[in-house]
Every structure is written in structure tokens, then in C-alpha cells.
């Protein structure tokens, strides 16, 4: 049995750990709040762009010339696929990163035979180290993003990613990230970023919502093609930013939950150890009394 002092020091250290996890839990809760309000503030922007793109894209059907754009059309042969994976910079957030990375790795192994067929664009230190260790081709990486990232911060990577598609380096781009469902639940999600050819089918699903708005016949100044050319990259970039905000919110949610259960575990552990400590203390006292009684009896 461990000595009294050993148990005592274990109790103290567990208490200290508990303080830290408790503090981290509260910090994450506050950050989660801000991340959520940031995501809400961003929503109108992407919705508006989406509205306009949708109305141009749907208007093109009636148009005899037809408005097409390379970013809207699936390429006949998909030679190379890119995966944009959004992870966190730091650990201590439960299964947030491992779940996502496992999913990405599985998807890649299922779809591709050789590293020639895919490329990775990684956000976050954990993801970068993971793929680097496995020697997988990383085309771009961003680490050390703020907790509440500004649009300007990811503008570069988003723009380069979109350019890589336009330049034909990649024929398809997927986003892999944790979607924020609720504070205690995050869902690993794969969405297709480019090409936006699923735009139309998506449109039909939510047509009831969009129909009254898109019915407007816009005047396009100078003409729809130019607008589409400028608008689509913005749209794709805003989708990346949206996913990033979503992932950040998930990260704080995951961290908060992880830290909460760590705090609970610490509380349980302290209780157990205190019990052991008291028992040991009691045993020591009993032993001492026994010895005194024994000693006194020997004198008689």
C-alpha cells in the first residue's frame, strides 16, 4: 500500500489538474460563444453571394447562349483530387482531430491507389504533422490561425486553392472538417467545394426557399459572364471560410466537452484517493494504538 505521503501528493496533483481543466473548459466556452456569433455574422455574406450565383446559374437555362463557367462544370476525367482538411493547432480536444483524420485517411485509401492521384491542403498543426509523418503530398498548409480567424487570414490559402483548381492542378476539391451540430456533438463532414456542378441539384432541394428571390430578372452590368467570373471565386473562397468558422466552433465545443469530462474524472479520482487516504490514515492510527496497547501489556 502506498504511503500516506504518496497518496497525499497524488491528491494535490489531481486537484491542480482539475483546476487547469476547469479553467480550460471555461475558456473554451467563452471562445465557443464568440465563434458562434462570428459564424452568424458571416452567414448573410455567403447567402447573398449564393443567391446571386444561383440566379445567374438558373437563368442560364432559359438563356439560349447559356452561361457556363469552368468552375460550374465537372471535368470529364478526374486526374487529381484535393482534400482541404481543417484540423486544430492544439490537442486536448477529445476525438476532434483523430476522428477527422481517420476519416480522411480512409477516404483517400479507398479512392486512390497512388499519391499521384491526390493532394492535401491542411489547416492546423495536428493535421499537418499527421500527414507529414505519413509522407503524403501536402500542397499547402496553414498553422497558427487565430481563435477567431479574420477573413483576410485565410484569403491567401483560399484564393490559391481556387486558383489550383482553375489552373488544372486539381480536378476536384473536397472539404473535410468537423461540422458543428451542438456543443456536445460534432460531425465529420465531407463537402465538395469545386466544381460547383452540384449547385443545381442542391438548388432543387431548397427551391421552395429560393424560388421567390431568384425569380427576379436581374440586369447584369456589364454582362452575366463577367459577373460569374468574378463572383464564383469569391463564392468558393467564402465557402472555405465558412467551413473554417464551422470547424472552429466545433473545436471549442469538442474541447469544452473533453475538458468537462476531464474535470469530472478528476473529481471522481480525488474522491477515490481521499477515501484511500483516510483508510490508510485510520489503519496507521489503529496500528499505533495496537502497538501502545501491546507495549503496555508486555510491561504488566
Amino acid at each position: 500500500m502506498a504511503s500516506l505521503r504518496d497518496i497525499k501528493s497524488r491528491i494535490t496533483s489531481t486537484k491542480k489538474t482539475k483546476q487547469i481543466t476547469k479553467a480550460m473548459q471555461m475558456v473554451s466556452a467563452a471562445k465557443l460563444n464568440r465563434a458562434q456569433s462570428k459564424a452568424t455574422a458571416f452567414l448573410p455574406y455567403t447567402e447573398k453571394i449564393r443567391d446571386v450565383v444561383a440566379s445567374i446559374a438558373s437563368g442560364s437555362e432559359s438563356d439560349e447562349e447559356g452561361i457556363s463557367h469552368p468552375m460550374l462544370e465537372a471535368r470529364e476525367e478526374v486526374k487529381k483530387t484535393a482534400y482541404l482538411v481543417i484540423t486544430s493547432d492544439r490537442g486536448l480536444c477529445g476525438a476532434y482531430n483523430s476522428g477527422l483524420l481517420r476519416h480522411t485517411l480512409k477516404t483517400i485509401n479507398e479512392r486512390h491507389q497512388s499519391p499521384e492521384e491526390y493532394g492535401l491542403i491542411v489547416v492546423g498543426r495536428v493535421g499537418r504533422d499527421f500527414f507529414k509523418k505519413r509522407g503524403m503530398p501536402i500542397y499547402q498548409e496553414v498553422v497558427g490561425l487565430q481563435d477567431q480567424p479574420e477573413y483576410a487570414e485565410i484569403k491567401n490559402i483560399a484564393a490559391t486553392t481556387v486558383d489550383m483548381f482553375t489552373d488544372g492542378i486539381f480536378d476536384e476539391i473536397y472539404l473535410h472538417y468537423n461540422h458543428f451540430v451542438s456543443v456536445i456533438s460534432q460531425k465529420v463532414t465531407e463537402t465538395k467545394l469545386l466544381p460547383l456542378n452540384e449547385f443545381d441539384t442542391e438548388e432543387e432541394g431548397s427551391e421552395t426557399e429560393l424560388a421567390p428571390k431568384t425569380n427576379l430578372e436581374y440586369i447584369y452590368e456589364p454582362d452575366p459572364k463577367v459577373i460569374l467570373e468574378q463572383l464564383l471565386p469569391h463564392y468558393a473562397e467564402s465557402l472555405i471560410y465558412g467551413a473554417l468558422l464551422d470547424a472552429k466552433a466545433s473545436e471549442f465545443g469538442a474541447r469544452m466537452t473533453a475538458m468537462q469530462s476531464a474535470t469530472n474524472n478528476a473529481t471522481d479520482r480525488i474522491e477515490e484517493l481521499t477515501l484511500v487516504y483516510n483508510r490508510a490514515r485510520q489503519a496507521a492510527i489503529t496500528q499505533e494504538i495496537n502497538e501502545i496497547v501491546g507495549g503496555a501489556a508486555a510491561l504488566d
Binding site: I56, Y218, I227, Q230
Partner: peptide, 19 residues
């Protein structure tokens, strides 16, 4: 200021999109 020139818009303008 659009790429095509200045534009003033008042209420009840026709729907329009411009960079």
C-alpha cells in the same frame, strides 16, 4: 463606382448586379 462607371440607385430600381 462599378467597373463600368458610376451608378446612382434610388428606391424601386430594377434588379441589378454589378461588380
Amino acid at each position: 463606382k462599378t467597373t463600368e462607371g458610376s451608378l446612382g440607385i434610388m428606391a424601386n430600381h430594377l434588379p441589378l448586379v454589378a461588380p
